[in-house]
């Protein structure tokens, strides 16, 4: 930095400056690419692990893949052909990798359908629910944190409310919401996934406890940021409280909250299982439970790889968000 300053004092022409920026953008891009690359590595490891687990699991692979379906020579031959079980192990591995990369997760012999089509048909409702819950969580967290940070009584009240929400199981919250808004007030449908209004209650029951956790972290970060010297500077410009909190404080508070949110979305997907049951919604949760109970290994493996994929995407997103939020984390040259 010092060297740079010296050159600046000598009134350098504009061209080195523009080069400086393209350099900066290049380092940001290379950092992003690096993170995407490590994400791909993790994904490859997950696929490999699921392949290995299939082969080291006790018992014969054919009966593992068939699950509780009746074993007939026809099906057995079909499986042997599909998984290439007569070929050497390494070429089995390569062709498995190749198939997974092409979105081919094999066939579920219990459900008599392609695993990929099965998951595709069920993933949309789950993603819808997760996204809606995330929106609920973030909106709740931001409002609760911004409105109460640093204020003695409001923050106590909000803190108590959040504690209740965090400690309430989401299915219980779901049942309570159903009782009040569906059965008593008849505002929202009881079950299904046909209309937007059917999304409201499941999203609330899943998102509120998440929002409560994020809200607490966000409030703490916001209060820390408001104690920083720059907050005094901003106030000395005549900024009002809302400007200080939204434009300056929130970004500082977002760093820890973004990490936490990334982790929690991963949990949302597994949390969705119960909520989907309570509200009678279709979704990934239901087929996962069915597959595990029915020992439908192709579906289980596909779900495992899919959840690894989701975690990788989320943590990559979190890392990139970090770089966007905090310029100091971008390469220092």
């Amino acid at each position: 930095m010092d060297v740079e300053n010296v050159t600046a004092l000598r009134q350098v022409p504009v061209s080195p400056a523009s080069r400086h920026f393209s350099l900066m953008r290049a380092t940001l891009l290379s950092q992003v690419l690096g993170r995407v690359g490590s994400g791909i590595l993790v994904l490859w490891a997950a696929i490999t692990l699921s392949f290995i687990s299939l082969h080291v699991a006790p018992g014969d692979i054919v009966s593992l893949l068939i699950g509780e379906q009746l074993r007939t020579p026809v099906i057995e031959a079909a499986i042997r052909a599909e998984w290439g079980l007569d070929e050497p192990l390494f070429s089995q591995y390569l062709s498995y990798l190749w198939r997974v990369l092409h979105g081919d997760f094999g066939r579920s012999y219990i459900l008599q359908t392609d695993v990929a089509t099965l998951i595709l048909s069920q993933i949309l409702p789950t993603l819808k629910l997760t996204a809606a819950a995330l929106v609920v969580a973030v909106v709740f967290a931001v409002i609760s944190a911004v409105a109460t940070a640093g204020l003695r009584w409001p923050r106590r009240i909000a803190g108590a409310m959040e504690l209740v929400l965090v400690s309430t199981p989401s299915f219980w919250l779901g049942i309570v919401l159903l009782f009040i808004f569906s059965f008593t007030l008849k505002l929202f449908p009881v079950a299904g996934d046909r209309t937007f209004s059917a999304l409201v209650l499941p999203a609330l029951s899943l998102g509120l406890s998440l929002g409560a956790v994020i809200g607490q972290v966000l409030r703490e970060g916001l209060e820390r940021a408001l104690e920083e010297p720059f907050a005094l500077t901003v106030r000395s410009w005549g900024a009002n409280g809302l400007t200080l909190r939204l434009r300056h404080g929130l970004r500082h508070a977002a760093l820890p909250a973004v990490t936490l949110t990334g982790w929690l979305i991963g949990n949302l997907l597994s949390g969705a299982v119960i909520t989907e049951q309570v509200f009678g919604r279709p979704g990934l949760g239901k087929i996962t439970v069915d597959a595990v109970l029915g020992k439908d290994l192709p579906v289980v493996l596909a779900v495992a790889i899919l959840s690894a994929f989701i975690y990788v995407v989320l943590s990559t997103l979190v890392d990139i968000l970090y770089l966007l939020i905090d310029p100091r984390l971008r390469a220092r040259t």
């Binding site: 920083e228 500077t233 300056h248 970004r251």
Partner: peptide, 11 residues
């Protein structure tokens, strides 16, 4: 204020 590194918003 003193020390602009922390007295300006670093972000």
């Amino acid at each position: 204020l003193q020390d602009a590194l922390v007295s300006l918003d670093p972000l």
